[in-house]
């Protein structure tokens, strides 16, 4: 069984946020109002986190795109009282909206703040409704949601390769963010396949994982020449 993972090269990322918008259009993510945004209720399954270091005239501004890191030991699933969030056999952390009771334990447990609570029912202008993606549900008020690695694309890819009678290849299944990344800073594929592009990239001395010390074993691996590198050895 493949183990899906993502590699994000921070040395190539320009912080343009194309991934953010691609994700929102793909996954029917409602936009916030200014008032909701002020309260920190904007939902963004992948978020660009700015990291400002140093002072004028030598400031260093970096961006860190943060999807759900799809941990192998996800802290969020351990606190879910209703099995609404769980780790599936392919290593993806699933989120089942119809089970979720909205207790928000998981949003608190996630050290990467990758989980979002729907404080209100999703709002769209009537005119926007036709462009909602039929492959992804509209989440109701009161449930927690997060990045799924565009899991619906995996379902479709599996279906396609099965119909064509062949094995699933890395390029068959690509999340929306990876597909659109202008700088080509994101890679996606099977971490268990020694020949895949992602596995090759994780061997780089630039590779590291976010908050490695927590033991969450994320499947999103970052690359950088900055001082964070070197934390990931596999």
């Amino acid at each position: 069984m493949p183990k899906w993972g993502m590699v994000i090269d921070l040395d190539k990322c320009t912080g343009c946020q194309a991934c953010v918008v691609a994700c929102k259009t793909e996954n029917n993510i409602p936009f916030s109002t200014p008032e909701q945004a002020e309260m920190g209720r904007t939902i963004s399954w992948i978020e660009i986190i700015p990291i400002m270091e140093g002072e004028y005239p030598r400031p260093k501004l970096r961006y860190l795109p943060r999807p759900c890191l799809q941990c192998d030991h996800p802290p969020c699933i351990k606190v879910c009282p209703v099995y609404a969030t769980y780790r599936n056999p392919e290593g993806l952390v699933g989120q089942v909206y119809s089970r979720c009771i909205g207790c928000r334990y998981c949003t608190a447990a996630c050290p990467y703040t990758a989980k979002y609570f729907n404080w209100s029912a999703p709002t769209w202008a009537k005119e926007f409704e036709p462009c909602l993606n039929p492959d992804v549900s509209k989440r109701p008020k009161g449930v927690v949601e997060k990045c799924t690695f565009c899991h619906h694309r995996l379902q479709k890819a599996k279906e396609k390769v099965k119909a064509e009678g062949r094995e699933l290849k890395d390029e068959d299944y690509v999340p929306a963010c990876v597909q659109t990344c202008p700088a080509g800073a994101m890679y996606f594929g099977d971490l268990d396949n020694p020949n895949s592009k992602v596995t090759q990239q994780t061997k780089s001395p630039r590779a590291f994982r976010l908050l490695e010390e927590l033991g969450t074993e994320p499947k999103v691996i970052y690359l950088t020449e900055g001082e964070w590198h070197g934390a990931y050895r596999k």
Binding site: N88, L92, G94, V96, D135, H152
Partner: peptide, 8 residues
């Protein structure tokens, strides 16, 4: 019978 195999 994985949940997310059918729940989107």
């Amino acid at each position: 019978v994985d949940c997310v195999a059918c729940h989107k």
